[in-house]
């Protein structure tokens, strides 16, 4: 498979009261076309900064990010970021949100928007405003708005961590179902090891700040993955050990 994303020696530090604060310290990895890679790490380790750099919202101090071989500049619709807090526009209806990033004539855009609303289970809610939706439905709207522009890459920064455990699990299954229909390259950032194993082909473990890649795990398990099965549990324990959490 061709390589989609190349992250090459990325460094990033921020100014702070006590001098420069090194946040990302030489991170390199690649993501193949159509692959799902999860990055797990302790909270505050610089995961989100790394994601912002890869998605183009921030610039690295040193090192580079290349998408399809080209130096990555500004954010664009080739890769859509879905973040923890969500960014569905509260002043637009679900349908208007989905049509936001689309070009072309109104009728075609509306048909496409409604198709994706239905795909994530939001049929009948096209005319609703976000404040009239539940947290889970809001996430579906966010996902649909990202998918409708047919991005090649989905950047997901703790996408479901604001949801309760049950809804989190439901949304993961939903995401896997949608991804099976449309092959995207996925870069997922999470602190939830189980979520990483559930969704990704590969899991990268980041160190404490400043973030470095500490370990890499292949998840060679077919979908649907049985989360309570021994293979997943074994992998989970190995990753947790790498993160410095020992389960007695």
């Amino acid at each position: 498979m061709p390589v989609k994303i190349v992250v090459d020696g990325v460094h990033k530090s921020f100014a702070s009261d006590v001098g420069p604060l090194q946040v990302v310290d030489g991170v390199s990895f690649t993501v193949d076309d159509g692959e799902s890679v999860a990055i797990v790490g302790p909270s505050g380790c610089g995961k989100s900064t790394l994601m912002n750099i890869v998605a183009g919202f921030e610039q690295a101090d040193r090192g580079s990010v290349r998408i399809d071989g080209a130096e990555h500049g500004r954010p664009n619709a080739k890769g859509i970021l879905i973040s923890q807090h969500g960014s569905v526009f509260p002043w637009l209806t679900v349908q208007q949100n989905l049509m936001f990033g689309l070009n072309g004539q109104a009728h075609g855009r509306q048909t496409l928007a409604d198709h994706y609303a239905a795909m994530v289970g939001l049929q009948g809610f096209e005319g609703s405003y976000p404040h009239e939706l539940s947290g889970g439905m809001l996430k579906r709207a966010e996902l649909a708005r990202a998918l409708v522009v047919k991005p090649e890459i989905l950047y997901m920064d703790e996408p479901f961590s604001a949801l309760d455990a049950l809804m989190n699990l439901r949304m993961r299954n939903e995401l896997l179902r949608v991804l099976a229909e449309e092959r995207h390259t996925v870069l997922l950032i999470t602190h939830d090891v189980e979520e990483a194993i559930h969704l990704a082909d590969r899991v990268l473990v980041l160190s404490q700040r400043p973030a470095r890649i500490q370990a890499m795990f292949d998840v060679r398990l077919p979908h649907p993955r049985k989360l309570s099965g021994p293979a997943v549990q074994e992998l989970r324990e190995a990753i947790l050990r790498e993160l410095g959490v020992d389960e007695a």
């Binding site: 954010p75 664009n76 859509i80 970021l81 969500g86 526009f89 990033g101």
Partner: peptide, 21 residues
């Protein structure tokens, strides 16, 4: 900022950002 970032992510024109966001 998250809304402005989302708008930038979809690569829409400045006019659209102004009118729709």
């Amino acid at each position: 900022r998250r809304y402005l970032r989302a708008a930038a992510n979809f690569g829409v024109s400045r006019y659209t950002v102004f009118r729709r966001v």
